[in-house]
Amino acid sequence: MTEVILIPKRNVDIKLEADIINPDSFAGKSAEEIGNLPIWQGPRTYPLCEFFEVKVNGGSSEAETIIRIKGDASRVKRIGEGMSAGKIEIEGSAGMHLGTGMKGGEIFVSGDTDSWPAMEMIGGLLHIKGNAGDHVGCAYRGKWHGMKGGRIVIEGSARHQVGGGMDGGEIFVEGNVEGFCGIRQTGGLIIVKGRALRGVGAEMTAGTIVIGGKIERFSPGFEYMGIEEGLTLGGVELKGKFKKFIGDYAISTRAKGVLYVAVDTNTEL
């Protein structure tokens, strides 16, 4: 087991791009080697040790590498991009593109994250204690397919376009979401405990969404199917009554997306 500890040295002005903060690239390296890995600030690269103090305790392979960032990394982008194994723990907030395209391993954030966490995730676990920005587990611009597997857990709230173009995997949001949660979803599961603003499941053709709170503006292309009581989805048990809808018929006449909406909070639907 290797433990790499990164301690931010100073406040960052122009945001950093640190795709090398990643168990795959840290594995088997000494503190000095890790400290010399390049990170980007604007068009220049700097050694990692310019911005972080690096401490390493033993170990070798990717799967056994734990990276602990002790402090705020909200101006550090692309941490854990494409990681395949190991673990990253951030004791603070993280910047954009956290765990983008991750294939495996775990990321745990005790604070908030900026937009695009786990974009097009393939596998692994991303756990965010605080809130997340836009595009959680979403597809990149103009792309039709987003997250394919893995699991995202957000204990706070997320903003727009959660799970856009999702093909597989699971997203759990304890708090609220804003617009277009599960847009263009073609598979997988999204569970939101709180309220949603609008466009839930817009343009979805398959997959499942559960909204526990109120939907402010319901997507008009969904058809009511009936009431179901008590759901067990993705290993999570959901109590209470849910209205089941199928859609989105705005995008396809053969849509098979399933949307469950809590009855208590959405009496008028």
Partner: peptide, 8 residues
């Protein structure tokens, strides 16, 4: 697409 939108 031949469906009636949700009344909301």
């Amino acid at each position: 697409h031949g469906k009636i939108p949700h009344p909301s």
